[in-house]
Simulated scan of single mutants.
Amino acid sequence: MIHHLSPDSDDVPVRIAVCLNSYNSRFLPQIQASYVRALGRVAPYAQLAFFESAKGEFPEPSQFDLIVLGGANVDARASWDFVLKIHRFIRTLVTTYPDKKVVGICWGHQTLSRVFGAEIVNMDVPEMGVTSINLTEEGRKFFPHAAATGVVRLQQHHRREVAAVPARFTPLAQGSQIFLNDNNTILTFQGHPEKDAQTARLRLHDTQRWFGFDAVDEKAWAALEAQIATEHDGDAIWKRIMDWVGEPSKRLYAPVSK
C-alpha cells in the first residue's frame, strides 16, 4: 500500500519503501501507522510503500529513494527461511544498487550488521522506553541538532545488541547504537525513531518476561510509563535522514552487471 502523505504538495516526493519484518504480528497495522505519523510530521511530501518481507514481499529498489528495514519480533540470529530471504534481498540490494540509501531500525540494524559480519549477542539488561544515547565525534558531526550536547534520545525495545562495529561501518554513537557505512549509503539505529509513546505501549507486556515485573507493581509500571512518555529526538532524526537521502554516496563500489 502506498501512502501519499501530502498529495497536493509541490515538493518532489521522496519515495520510501518500509520493510515490515515481523512474523505474523497482530501489531503490523499500528507499526505501519507509526511510520505514517512520524514521516508525516517531517516529510509531508513523502510517498510511503509498505512490504511484509516476512511474507516474501520486497520492494523493487529502482522505484524508491530510501529503503527502510524495520523491526521484527524474532531473534536476528535466527536462520529461518524468511530471515535468509531478507539476507539475500540485502545482499542483492547492496551489490546491484550500491548507491541506494538504506536505513536499518532495531532488528534491521542488527540484521544489516549480521550480514556485514558482526555478531549479535544477548544484553545483560534489555532496553525499553526512551534512552539517552551518547554520540561519538563522528555522530556529533552527522547530527548537527545534537552537536552541542552529544546526546540523542530514542525509544528502545530490544534485548539483544550488536557486539562490535561491522566492517566498513563507522559508529556514530557509543554502545553499537548507530552505524554509518563508509559509502554513506547505509545508516542504522538500534533505537526506534519511528516510534511514539502510543506505539511503544503496544509491547509493555514484554516487561514481565524481560524484567520480571510484577503485574501489580504500580511503582515499576509508573516508572516505565514515564520513560516511554519522555520527549525524544525521533522527529529530528527523521529530518536528518531526509537530508541524508539527498546526499551523494562516496561511489566506493561498482554495481554488479545485470
Rank of each mutant, 00 (worst) to 15 (best):
W80Q: 10
D81A: 14
D81F: 10
D81N: 13
L84C: 09
L84I: 05
K85G: 12
I86G: 06
I86V: 11
H87N: 08
H87D: 08
R88A: 14
F89I: 00
F89N: 00
F89L: 03
F89A: 01
F89D: 00
I90D: 02
I90F: 02
I90T: 03
I90R: 03
R91P: 08
T92Y: 04
T92S: 12
L93N: 01
L93D: 02
L93F: 01
V94F: 00
V94Y: 01
T96H: 15
T96Y: 09
Y97Q: 08
Y97G: 02
Y97A: 06
Y97P: 04
Y97F: 15
P98D: 01
P98E: 04
P98A: 04
P98W: 06
D99L: 00
D99G: 07
D99S: 10
K100C: 04
K100A: 07
K100F: 02
K101R: 11
K101F: 00
V102W: 01
V103R: 01
V103D: 00
G104H: 09
G104E: 07
I105G: 10
I105R: 10
C106F: 11
C106N: 12
W107D: 12
W107Q: 13
G108E: 13
G108Q: 12
Q110T: 06
Q110V: 05
Q110Y: 04
T111L: 15
L112R: 03
L112W: 06
S113Q: 03
R114A: 07
R114L: 06
V115M: 04
V115R: 03
V115L: 05
V115H: 03
G117C: 02
G117R: 01
A118K: 00
E119W: 02
E119P: 07
I120Y: 14
I120V: 15
I120Q: 11
V121I: 15
V121K: 14
V121T: 14
N122H: 08
N122R: 12
M123R: 14
M123V: 03
D124N: 10
D124V: 08
V125Y: 09
P126E: 01
P126Y: 00
E127F: 09
M128C: 06
G129K: 04
V130P: 08
V130N: 06
T131R: 13
T131W: 10
T131Q: 14
S132F: 01
S132N: 14
S132T: 08
I133D: 05
I133Q: 05
I133A: 05
N134K: 14
N134R: 15
T136Q: 06
E137P: 05
E137I: 05
E137R: 09
E137Q: 13
E138T: 07
G139C: 07
R140Q: 14
K141E: 15
K141C: 14
K141Q: 15
K141R: 15
F142R: 13
F142G: 09
F142H: 13
F143I: 08
F143R: 09
F143A: 08
P144C: 13
P144F: 03
H145S: 13
H145I: 09
